[in-house]
């Protein structure tokens, strides 16, 4: 069976939050909407987002590394949030492995969010149902869209193309190749949930300049060499026969 997923390349993610708001924009008026905001223009505004970008720092100055870390539902292959749901509202689609919530069945007991170690579900306090990333299910299966646009909104928006979308069960898909070749890793693998989304680690490009490479034969300074003026003193040529 296919397992659609995202691979997020931390090597190029600059933390611009395009994935956060393009997702909110698409889904609030889409199938999985609305994504309600609370106190939108007041103190401590909050609201439902399917995807958020966090910032981490590692190390001590001056060897500090800064990481931008987008996080949304990882569409686990063995999702702990599905069996615990008492009403069957939380389900995983057979055809493409996307984990979804059926708002008509959800009774708002929040048990599924307790069972997700990644905190990938957010409760809509107004509609009183649990909501989560749907991998833009209403977009990726919309045959009226051209092939190039039948992708999640965050993937299309991302300026650095850090979000790769595809089927991780297909070894030749872009995502599988990226995971294999660039060391894609899952989050919290210890729990055995087998998250489908993977992250690509940071890689450094270094240059080695060898000392002897610095000065080449055709060094421009040679061209500037001033003619060496002869010293004024006597030379052998003057005195010997």
């Amino acid at each position: 069976m296919t397992q659609l997923a995202l691979v997020i390349d931390l090597n190029v993610c600059v933390g611009c939050h395009a994935c956060v708001t393009s997702c909110k924009e698409w889904n609030t008026s889409g199938w999985a909407g609305p994504l309600t905001d609370q106190r939108p223009y007041d103190a401590d505004p909050t609201g439902v987002f399917f995807n958020r970008v966090q910032t981490y720092e590692a190390g001590v100055f001056p060897n500090t590394e800064t990481y931008h870390f987008p996080k949304s539902c990882l569409h686990c292959e063995d999702p702990p949030c599905v069996p615990v749901c008492p009403t069957g509202a939380s389900y995983k689609r057979e055809d493409n492995g996307v984990v979804l919530v059926d708002y008509d069945k959800c009774i708002g007991c929040k048990y599924c969010s307790w069972a997700c170690p990644y905190g990938a579900r957010e409760f809509d306090e107004q509609q009183k149902v649990m909501k989560k990333c749907t991998l833009c299910i209403d977009r990726i299966t919309d045959m009226s869209l051209p092939e190039s646009e039948r992708k999640p909104a965050c993937v299309l928006a991302c300026p650095t193309r850090a979000r790769i979308y595809g089927d991780i069960h297909d070894p030749d898909s872009e995502v599988s190749v990226a995971i294999r070749e660039q060391g894609g890793y899952p989050l919290q693998p210890e729990w055995g949930t087998k998250p489908s989304n993977h992250y690509l680690p940071r890689r450094k490009t270094r240059i080695q300049i060898h000392e002897d490479e610095l000065v080449r034969v055709d060094n421009p300074l040679k061209k500037e060499a001033l003619p060496t003026l002869p010293e004024a003193g006597e030379t052998l040529d003057d005195v010997a026969w």
Binding site: D44, T46, F49, R52, F123
Partner: peptide, 9 residues
């Protein structure tokens, strides 16, 4: 930064 500042679910 956790991605937001007004708290979330």
């Amino acid at each position: 930064a956790q991605g937001f500042m007004g708290g979330s679910f």
